[in-house]
Amino acid sequence: MTSMLPEEGEHLTTGWEDDLAPTDSLVRQAVLAHVSWARALTTAARGTFAEGPDWCAGRGGAPSALHNWAIVTRPPRDWAQTVGAIATAYPDGVAALVISPFPTPDLTRHGLGLVGHPPLMFRPTTTVTTTPATPLDVREATTDQQLRDAERVLIEGYPMPDMADLPPGDFYRPEVVAGPTRVFVGYDGETPVATSAAHSAAGVTVVENVAVLASARGQRAGAALTWAAATAWPGQSAVLIASDDGQPVYERLGYLRLERWTCWLRP
């Protein structure tokens, strides 16, 4: 039997090297795609995007955590150092989500609050499910008004009360759909009641910002808007970070739970 022990000085691939293909693993694809999504939001908001060897941090320019995403991009050797570096990307009083695909130690000593352990879910292209039936008219947001409609539904339906006082169009600016991002809105007549977003990167589609107003519950709005985002690029698999409430909806659409990530809030 050939020895499985590495030779002296031999590098053992961890799956998180810079020069490794995005497709090395589904989790790697999901991490890189979410980094791209954070960068796209920051760019559209004309904010700043900072990166280190095992983290990235996007600051969109508003105090809401939805504007400010930090992602741990590989297992840190020193969590205190990584969290400290992320903290420098945000001034005092600016909230940020810190998302880790890897198990974390207790970060409360660094001023973070635990949000939860949401599952990363994956929908392969081989999945066969029926397009969700809904009375809503699902449209892609391509105009300023449609983007404002999506933004208002997101703020009220998610909900994101800390974004309620932002000027219309401050989050979904036209630049956000100028690149590999698509936004969808579900209308009841001419009233926007549901929304979702899709972002293409690293060979997968990130499904994000699924929100439904209370008035539209029971119309399969969440399923329809998730479907629109997941199939925005039909040749790609889709990934999303799910809430506990959303998991049953996603499972009915063919999503599989891969693993749980960890989400912290920097208040």
Rank of each mutant, 00 (worst) to 15 (best):
E190Q: 12
L20G: 05
A133R: 13
T88L: 15
T181A: 12
A45C: 14
T13L: 12
T104N: 09
M4F: 13
A197M: 11
D106Y: 00
A80F: 06
V239W: 00
A50E: 05
D165R: 10
W69Y: 09
I71E: 06
L213E: 08
D92T: 14
P76D: 14
V83F: 05
I241K: 12
S64N: 03
W69L: 01
R74Q: 13
P234Y: 14
L240I: 14
A232K: 01
A133E: 15
P192I: 09
R173K: 11
T195F: 06
W37Y: 15
G84C: 10
A201F: 00
D149L: 07
L258C: 06
T125R: 11
D149N: 13
D106L: 01
E51P: 03
A40V: 01
Q146T: 13
E8I: 08
P119R: 07
S237C: 04
D245Y: 01
F49V: 00
P168H: 05
Y90H: 14
T2G: 15
A201K: 01
R59Y: 00
D19V: 11
D19P: 00
A201V: 03
T205F: 05
E8C: 11
T231Y: 05
G218H: 08
L20I: 03
S215F: 03
G52R: 07
P167F: 04
C56H: 03
E17Y: 12
L166Q: 14
G186V: 01
G179C: 11
R173W: 07
R74P: 12
H34T: 14
E251L: 09
L114F: 09
M4T: 14
A216F: 00
V83K: 12
V27L: 13
A62Q: 00
Y187P: 10
V35I: 04
P91K: 09
A45F: 06
E208S: 14
P118M: 09
E259W: 06
G111K: 03
T131H: 15
P105K: 14
R74E: 11
T104W: 02
P6F: 03
T195M: 08
S243Y: 01
R139P: 05
R77K: 13
S36R: 08
R220H: 07
I241L: 15
R109N: 00
G61S: 06
T42A: 02
D144M: 04
L120N: 08
G93I: 04
C56Y: 10
P174W: 02
G116H: 05
P119D: 06
P22S: 09
E17Q: 13
A229W: 01
A230W: 06
V31I: 10
Y250S: 06
A238V: 06
A133W: 07
A214T: 02
V206K: 02
D165K: 05
A230Q: 04
D244L: 14
R123L: 00
H67K: 04
W233P: 03
S36D: 06
V27Q: 02
T142F: 05
V249H: 07
P159A: 12
E175M: 09
L256K: 08
A96Q: 02
Y250P: 07
T73G: 02
L66R: 09
A133N: 14
I99W: 06
E208K: 10
C56T: 08
L5E: 04
A224F: 02
P53F: 05
